[in-house]
């Protein structure tokens, strides 16, 4: 072996400023949220979001360079990356579990304050068989196209991978646009009883995750276009696909329990 790398399969990372800028900007972001909520001044929040975004872009750019251009992602390293993604998605499942808990806590035995019924008295809910059902179909279709993209990558078919991943990103953005329209036309707000609170917190965080997942897939589309992936080296794409399936499954639970059963 000729490289200066030690005789082992692991990736000992170089010094990096991003953990420091990440910590500082996460602190600014959360403190900025509190400042915004209490003093109606978003300045610190904007600074925090900007600094967090810049940290994310540059940190992941470095990881892309390490994996794609420096060849530091051996089999053993990718196993570590896989475990990281599995544990991250597990933590996300628990995050959404708490919102479902809040929803069922309020809806299974409705308080007298909301009229002892669910949906609460005076709340006009969405028809689950209109836009929400279309959104279900869109996300299910995007799950199929992202699998198509994966098979195309595993068969080294660049053209089909670009097409199918492009369609997946489009479907993700279509979903977001429809949700924005639904929010715009909603006959209730986040301040309308516990229905509005649980509805907008659960579907809002899901929408945020769809935006994150679409961004993740868009980064993969760019990296695919730039030929960063091969038939056996594409964990970045697989992680995005896992995340996308997770977002899809959360939507199915939201649709069934909040839109359909609870609507």
């Amino acid at each position: 072996m000729t490289s200066s790398h030690g005789h082992h399969a692991f990736h000992l990372v170089d010094m990096s400023p991003w953990p420091l800028t990440g910590s500082i900007s996460a602190m600014m972001l959360t403190t900025g949220l509190v400042k915004w909520f209490h003093q109606f001044n978003p300045d610190l929040l904007i600074l925090g979001v900007t600094a967090t975004t810049l940290t994310m872009i540059q940190w992941w750019r470095d990881i892309t360079r390490e994996g794609t251009y420096q060849g530091l992602h051996t089999k053993a390293v990718t196993i570590g990356l896989r475990w990281g993604m599995i544990l991250f998605i597990t933590s996300e499942v628990l995050f959404f579990f708490s919102f479902f808990w809040a929803f069922f806590h309020s809806s299974l035995a409705p308080n007298v304050e909301v009229g002892s019924c669910w949906p609460p008295a005076g709340i006009q809910t969405f028809n689950p068989f209109q836009i929400p059902l279309l959104n279900t179909a869109i996300l299910l279709a995007s799950g199929a196209t992202v699998t198509w993209a994966h098979h195309a990558i595993m068969e080294s078919n660049h053209s089909q991978a670009m097409q199918s991943l492009g369609i997946t990103v489009f479907l993700g953005m279509y979903f977001t646009a429809l949700q924005a329209l639904e929010y715009y036309e909603a006959p209730f707000t986040i301040a309308d009883s516990v229905y509005g609170s649980t509805f907008f917190v659960a579907t809002g965080f899901h929408g945020l995750h769809v935006i994150i997942g679409s961004t993740f897939l868009m980064v993969c589309l760019y990296r695919l276009y730039k030929c960063h992936f091969s038939a056996t080296h594409h964990f970045g794409f697989e992680a995005a696909a896992w995340y996308w399936h997770f977002v899809d499954v959360v939507w199915l639970f939201l649709y069934i329990s909040i839109y359909w059963w609870g609507g």
């Binding site: 072996m1 790398h5 060849g71 089999k75 990558i153 080294s156 078919n157 091969s230 056996t232």
Partner: peptide, 19 residues
């Protein structure tokens, strides 16, 4: 015709390629 991606062995570099 479908454009194809690089062969994994040609695509890899560094320690990953040695492995």
């Amino acid at each position: 015709a479908n454009k194809m991606m690089a062969d994994p062995m040609e695509h890899a570099t560094g320690l990953e390629k040695q492995e």
